Simulated scan of single mutants.
Amino acid sequence: MIDIHCHILPGIDDGAQSMEDTIKMARAAVDEGIHTIIATPHHKNSKYDNPKELIIPKVEEVNKALTSEGIDLMILPGQEVRLYGELIEGLENNEILSLNHTQYVFVEFPSNHVPRYAETLLFDLQLKEITPIIVHPERNQEIIERPEVLYNLVKKGALTQVTASSVSGHFGKKIRNFSFQLIESNLTHFIASDAHNVGNRGFKMAETMDLIQSKYGNDLFYFFQENAELLVQGNHVYQDTPEPIKKKKFLGIF
């Protein structure tokens, strides 16, 4: 498996705090069948700034450490960018790091709302041939309450990535059920761990992909697997036509 969202780089955000933590996470990833991880440290959120020039050497350092430890895992460079008004300028100034130097860029919304300028900015990214991937929309309060907001963004070309732990229920029943709705409505294109440690924010990828295979069958199982591979290669990923989520159905009110 390929995990496209992980906070495995040591000492730069709220993920691994030391190289020892990084090694523990790497061993846990391999145990789950993960062979490649895109490291995606936070950038431009309220606590952390991790520009491209800082991330690249960190990735090289970690890969050397994994080789010396005999751990068969490849780390690729990436970034989890909190949406901000000057994101385009950040790209032009070589501060923003796409996922493995491809056309795909992670975009994170604040947890409780979607900024009003999000639609315009995501469209502007696409005009520059950058494909935005909205991370963990299933945990955004406004999207949970108004799923049509996400539908509109996906319909206009944005992609999304749902967290494995959300699907498997580790963030609670409400978020699990909403994650299912996103999957069933073709409103997500990737499943990734967003792992921060080996404890309460672990990978949960093997468990989640097994769940997806048993609940939805092989087609969707391979859809998510292959999309991660296509992303790493910088190729176009699979997209099915998105469908709006009926809020009343989601809330169980008929």
Score class of each variant (00 low, 15 high):
3 D>F: 01
5 H>S: 12
5 H>C: 12
6 C>V: 08
8 I>C: 04
9 L>F: 04
12 I>S: 01
15 G>T: 06
17 Q>Y: 00
21 D>I: 12
23 I>H: 01
25 M>P: 02
28 A>F: 09
29 A>K: 09
30 V>W: 08
30 V>R: 01
33 G>P: 14
34 I>Q: 05
42 H>R: 07
43 H>R: 09
45 N>H: 02
45 N>S: 01
51 P>I: 03
54 L>T: 08
57 P>Y: 06
61 E>M: 05
68 S>A: 13
69 E>M: 00
70 G>H: 10
72 D>C: 10
73 L>A: 06
80 E>A: 09
86 E>Y: 09
88 I>C: 02
89 E>S: 14
90 G>R: 04
101 H>D: 15
101 H>S: 14
103 Q>Y: 11
107 V>R: 07
112 N>F: 13
114 V>D: 06
116 R>E: 14
118 A>H: 04
119 E>Q: 12
119 E>T: 03
120 T>K: 14
127 L>F: 07
128 K>F: 05
129 E>H: 12
129 E>K: 15
130 I>V: 15
131 T>F: 02
131 T>P: 02
133 I>P: 03
137 P>H: 06
141 Q>I: 08
143 I>F: 09
146 R>G: 10
151 Y>R: 07
152 N>Y: 08
152 N>V: 00
157 G>F: 07
157 G>I: 14
157 G>A: 11
159 L>I: 06
162 V>D: 05
163 T>W: 03
164 A>H: 07
166 S>T: 09
166 S>Y: 08
171 F>E: 01
175 I>G: 04
175 I>A: 02
176 R>L: 00
177 N>H: 08
178 F>T: 01
181 Q>A: 08
181 Q>K: 14
182 L>Y: 07
184 E>L: 13
184 E>P: 06
187 L>D: 02
188 T>Q: 08
191 I>Y: 05
194 D>S: 07
198 V>G: 02
198 V>S: 01
198 V>D: 11
200 N>A: 05
204 K>R: 09
205 M>P: 06
208 T>Q: 05
208 T>W: 09
212 I>H: 09
213 Q>W: 13
215 K>H: 14
215 K>P: 06
217 G>H: 09
218 N>I: 11
218 N>P: 00
219 D>C: 00
221 F>W: 14
222 Y>D: 05
223 F>C: 03
225 Q>S: 05
226 E>D: 15
229 E>S: 09
231 L>D: 03
233 Q>N: 11
234 G>L: 13
235 N>V: 00
235 N>F: 14
239 Q>S: 14
241 T>G: 00
242 P>K: 07
243 E>T: 13
246 K>P: 00
247 K>P: 01
249 K>P: 08
